[in-house]
Design a binder for these strands. Structure first.
Lengths: 357, 357
DNA sequence: ATGAAAGCGCTAACAA
DNA sequence: TTGTTAGCGCTTTCAT
């Protein structure tokens, strides 16, 4: 009842083990007759080569490790999905681990993956982008690709253009007359946070302005956090007139905060979010969103990885970077500042004509 | 520059390879002195045992395969996340693959995983729940656990109580006076769909009624599908007065359909959805939801798996089933039928008092 | 073109 | 308690 090995196949085909291997892999000098016989024997036996044994010999597993901070983030999930799909096309397997933003676990899982002899590592995890982490991998000849993270002086990666995204979103609000704009984004310790804050500041700088420091709230993404922060921001007298919500679950927290305070967008505050989600589309008012192609991110990072894999046709060694640009989807959640303060609130009008029943 | 092997460690510690192995694994008869020396040598060398070689010998990889139809489904993502977390605690790795509801790919990926010698397989994929699939695995001694799927006559699994969930939701609507209730659920070919339809029918049966066949729409989950189906259902004269949306992305499709038709919940139609999402919570009106603990599903399935793994303390052989119950979260998206037809639509009142600015 | 044989790094059975 | 040795299943020289 044990699985047939190549030995069984060779025996049955009446050839040696070596020949069987060559025939199976169509490698080098094998006669057509041998190929046919071996193939037949393999089929008859239901032979499946043992990937572990192959890895043992060839020192290549065909497995790529993916470290992500939190898969339950739907936006990450979409990326991981795309990574897997692309890898699958090339016969690569995906080993997945969550780090839960825990630096210690990050390190542990990298070791774990290395012990398992993954052929490459995709990293989107780090609390802090320690360069030695990335360089250590490259030095050991383990291809690593960064997913929206900057490891100083290192390697390939896919990067979303958060800077210009935040710039564009902020500029849009400034053009509407807003000056007290709250920026809520996860972790300024990592690239997305840093870039967004920089873009935010740049938009103000274009007009010779500077944002109030207290309005920049950079913390790990969490709905609960966003909710309480929103309440805190709304409680003061000089409350923000606009919210830029740059984290997956931040939007819901902010919307709940506004609701809890009895405020409505866009009359009381304008709102911009990221990721063109169901919520953005269906909330009333529709939420103006800063978004990008999440599937493209996953596909790109997978392709960068595949290119650097041992077996790849042209094993590119020089680092490569892919930039993913953002787009704004305009909806109804932003309004000129004047109308919010000066004019009385206009009566809400339905977005579509109501059908007569 | 090559990684140190156990040989190097043994050499440096001045012991034999066998002793080094025993010391590293703290297995059996080893002197304290040996353990100390070997440990020191391993640390000095930065030795990490090669998991592939270990697997080769022990015939156990410490890897569990997970087959899921579509990870970009946020609800699945949450489950996978929980699975990974639980597995990680026990030092198991997670090999992940999407099947995209493609029966052929399902089979291919199972073979792929088996070739990689996974220790176990978690399956939540199957278009059709072919018994031979599951039985084939068990017969080969590969532990398999089903995730909300029924493989006739087979194995362990975690099952959400969709039957009672749908029963409860439908009963709730019937109690409100609704009779033309549309049920939208993905694939009746698989367990969740079947159970939901059965629960739906059971609720009608309790009152000696029978649902109209045309109101049961069971297709693969997709927002686009839900949207067009909703429009189709709304276009007739005898349009449904309530929608039960039992698929992750179905709710958005239905809501968009209603909006497109110029209709509003709950005045024109009551709506119930699954999974207590951001959208359910923040949409106006708040969507009454049928939900369950997705993390518990993932944890349970992981634990079922761990229990059946070769190394497990008591390798349970008899199949085990875990049932996850559903809860209703009542919000504002459902209304008595009478008020929708007889009474004029009441003016909307804000959910919370509006603060004076 | 084929067969024999040497390992990949490790564990486990057997001797000592 | 320790060292020696035989593989796990496969690929890959090296002869033939």
């Amino acid at each position: 009842m044990t699985r047939p090995t190549i030995r069984d196949v060779a025996l049955r085909a009446g050839v040696s083990i070596g020949t069987a291997s060559r025939a199976l892999n169509r490698a080098g000098r094998v006669s057509q007759a041998a190929i046919t016989a071996v193939q037949a024997a393999a089929d008859a036996l239901g032979y499946e080569p043992d990937a572990i044994a192959q890895s043992m010999r060839t020192r290549s597993t065909g497995v790529v490790g993916l470290l992500v901070s939190d898969l339950s983030n739907p936006l990450y999930a979409r990326i991981v999905n795309a990574v897997e799909a692309r890898l699958q096309r090339d016969g690569c397997a995906l080993l997945l681990a969550n780090t839960h933003n825990d630096a210690q676990r990050e390190r542990a899982m990298i070791d774990f993956f290395r012990r398992r002899r993954v052929d490459g590592l995709i990293l989107a995890p780090c609390q802090s982008e320690r360069p030695e982490l990335f360089e250590g991998l490259s030095a050991q000849g383990l291809p690593a690709v960064a997913l929206d993270r900057d490891f100083p002086g290192a390697g390939s990666g896919v990067h979303v253009d958060h800077f210009n995204g935040a710039l564009q979103a902020t500029r849009y609000l400034l053009n509407l007359g807003h000056r007290r704009i709250a920026l809520m984004t996860p972790g300024q310790a990592v690239r997305p946070g840093r870039e967004r804050i920089a873009g935010f500041r740049a938009a103000y700088a274009e007009r010779g302005l500077q944002p109030e420091a207290r309005l920049v709230r950079a913390e790990p993404s969490a709905m609960q956090f966003a909710f309480s922060e929103t309440l805190a921001l709304l409680s003061g007298t000089e409350r923000p007139t606009a919210f830029v919500c740059l984290g997956t679950r931040i939007l819901s927290g902010v919307l709940q905060g506004l609701r809890h305070a009895g405020l409505t967008a866009p009359e009381d505050a304008s709102v911009i979010s990221i990721g063109d989600t169901d919520l953005s589309q269906l909330f009333s008012p529709g939420i103006t969103s800063l978004t990008w192609d999440f599937e493209a991110v996953g596909t790109a990072v997978a392709e960068l990885m595949l290119k650097r894999l041992p077996g790849a046709p042209a094993a590119a060694t020089e680092p490569e970077r892919v930039v993913i640009t953002t787009q704004m989807v305009l909806r109804e959640s932003c309004a000129p500042l004047a109308s919010a303060t000066a004019a009385p609130r206009p009566a809400p009008r339905p977005r579509v004509a109501r059908r007569t029943p």
